[in-house]
């Protein structure tokens, strides 16, 4: 089954996840690397133009060897030296890693880079892209042979909760033990859905907005039962706003926000 996440279960029973990079991001990173290779080759050509005056034979030999070394060695040297990254991969926050979470080995780096010869066929990595698209772990043929995957680690941005929640009284905070229970029972995915719904609330049609927030509020009400006076006169959307507030912001953070205000 195709997935965008690689889950690794350790013998201790701990599961950690890594996001897999898709074919498009990888192609863009390769585009940057292609430019880097072109710049290196251009620099080599300029340097050899000077040598050409002294010995055309030697310049020709160095040109052939340099072209070979740069075009094949660039990926190997970068990925080995920077622990699975090239310039393109650094820019797009991608990294090559062992498919089972082990340390990336030199022979794996070499294998996946040498197999570019097949992956890049016919032109523009068609074979590699197709393999990546069909593979459950988004692997091109070189990755399959080397047992590697390319993961992405996007820079996480904190949501602007102050703008969303500022200045509103939160009746749920009167019940700290229930708030603690709620924070335990809400999964990261559920919290993210609630936050996204609030952040994009103005994009919905009025009727759809009412229905969506009613459904979400109903879902979160089942997690922890608050006393009726805590929920008195609170609309579904406000209830969800309160839930997001207690889930994402601790009491200390709230105090800091108030003090700053």
């Amino acid at each position: 089954m195709k997935t965008s996440t690689l889950l690794i279960r350790t013998p201790e029973g701990i599961v950690f996840s890594q996001s897999l990079a898709g074919p498009v991001t990888r192609f863009l990173a390769w585009g940057i690397d292609f430019l880097c290779i072109a710049v290196l080759l251009l620099t080599l050509a300029k340097l050899l133009a000077v040598l050409q005056v002294i010995s055309a034979n030697m310049a020709g030999a160095l040109s052939a060897l340099g072209y070979f070394a740069i075009s094949i060695g660039y990926g190997i040297a970068c990925e080995w030296g920077w622990r699975g990254q090239t310039v393109g991969k650094k820019l797009f926050r991608l990294r090559v890693m062992d498919a089972e979470g082990f340390r990336l080995q030199f022979h794996q780096v070499v294998t996946r880079n040498l197999l570019r010869f097949v992956d890049s066929l016919p032109p523009f990595y068609f074979v590699g892209g197709l393999a990546c698209w069909l593979s459950p772990k988004c692997q091109r043929l070189g990755d399959v042979a080397a047992n590697t995957v390319v993961i992405r680690s996007p820079r996480a941005t904190e949501p602007d909760l102050d703008q969303l929640l500022a200045g509103k009284y939160n009746s749920l905070r009167q019940y700290p033990h229930l708030v603690a229970r709620l924070r335990q029972r809400v999964s990261p995915a559920e919290a993210s859905v609630a936050l996204q719904a609030l952040l994009r609330r103005d994009e919905f049609d009025p009727q759809a907005r009412i229905e969506l927030f009613a459904m979400l509020a109903g879902h979160f009400r089942e997690k922890v039962e608050f006393p009726p006076e805590a929920l008195d006169g609170i609309a579904d959307e406000q209830y969800l706003r309160n839930v997001v507030d207690v889930v994402y912001r601790t009491r200390t953070e709230e105090r800091k926000v108030k003090a700053a205000a």
């Binding site: 950690f16 082990f102 340390r103 680690s153 904190e158 924070r183 990261p188």
Partner: peptide, 23 residues
């Protein structure tokens, strides 16, 4: 892992555990 308000810490720990696991 189940703590929804700490995605940053979770991600940091995942990276740390992944690195240590590989060693």
């Amino acid at each position: 892992t189940t703590f929804s308000s700490e995605p940053e810490t979770r991600r940091y720990l995942e990276t740390l555990v992944a690195r240590a696991y590989s060693e």
